[in-house]
Write a protein that binds this DNA or RNA. Structure first.
Lengths: 187, 187
DNA sequence: GTCTATAACACGATAGAC
DNA sequence: GTCTATCGTGTTATAGAC
């Protein structure tokens, strides 16, 4: 499916890992090049700039997150499980070969000036996916209150991701899920 | 109390504003110097490095946040209001002369490598303040469930801050408060 | 498309006078 | 303590050969 260009794919993979580990700003282009085993001019031929590479990484990553979440929803046994499957997906996404410290999209927004167009587009796409799918999945659980419950869960999912930056990051998803369960149960 | 050195105070103020607006990494030292109207050597005489300046900004900011939150708690009319006063404080803190895009401490953690000692200390101090005071304030509302409710609210507060990075940042605090109210009401 | 080599620049930090 | 001037380094991006 993906048209193969060895250098291009290696650049995307190297950049995704390094950007996630260290942040985009703290990752020199040289380091991406070294990890990918590619020459500078090749990177600029494909992506035009470091920002272009970053945008390509974000695109690829949103598609993979979308797929991972969809798979977790499919694997859940009932309506409630499907709504909470976002936490299963968060838990397994990193293990499925998607290196992440907390959240690529929030990190991009946080690391860029407020008016950066690339960052704004990335965080907007991620937010839209979260809000629309949560609303859809909340329907069978909350009926007319689906939009409101989805909005609550969007806050909780965002909070779960942010908790990964605080001490005790390892238990962030478990704690976030507990909060989400309390909200779902109160409907 | 604070020994006055005009240049020092101006540097702290300029750095707090610029770091909050653009992020630390995206803010060159030159820009802080220009805004403060101070020469490079003066900054290094006072703070030793850009990281030293950042640490000083974080210290001052945690103290101010602590005070602003405490004031909001005092102004609340009842136990439930005191527990939710953290949202009042979030709403008014920025207006009270504390420039912020989302959260200085989370932004510091997000912008630094995972093993950065300065960033880790800052986020740990902020987290400890949030957790301990929320637990204390949850006591009269939730009794034995205070610790659990506080943990939920810590997730929601973190989520509220993260929502400021998503589209619709202006309503982030209002939406976060609504989520918190749903949790408090379900106890 | 990919390479080697290097240009052009911005940044953090310092030297030395006052 | 504060200034002016500058150094050294690391970084992004490009030129030109293959």
């Amino acid at each position: 499916m993906t048209p193969r260009s060895g250098a291009r794919e290696r650049l995307l993979g190297a950049a995704e890992t390094l950007f996630a580990d260290q942040g985009v700003a703290a990752t020199p282009v040289d380091q991406v090049l070294a990890r990918a085993g590619v020459a500078p001019a090749t990177l600029y031929a494909h992506f035009g700039s470091k920002a272009g590479l970053q945008a390509a990484v974000l695109d690829a990553r949103l598609a993979r997150w979308d797929a991972a979440w969809a798979a977790a929803v499919d694997a859940a046994p009932d309506d409630r499980g499907r709504l909470l499957a976002v936490f299963d997906a968060l838990d397994t996404f990193a293990r499925g070969g998607a290196p992440s410290r907390w959240c690529t999209f929030l990190a991009t927004a946080a690391g860029a000036p407020a008016d950066d167009a690339t960052a704004a587009a990335a965080i907007a796409a991620d937010t839209e996916l979260l809000r629309s799918r949560l609303t859809e999945l909340a329907g069978p659980v909350a009926g007319d209150g689906a939009a409101e419950l989805a909005e609550h869960l969007l806050v909780v999912v965002s909070g779960t991701l942010a908790m990964r930056l605080r001490p005790g990051a390892d238990s962030a998803v478990a704690r976030g899920r507990a909060t989400a369960e309390a909200l779902v149960s109160s409907v």
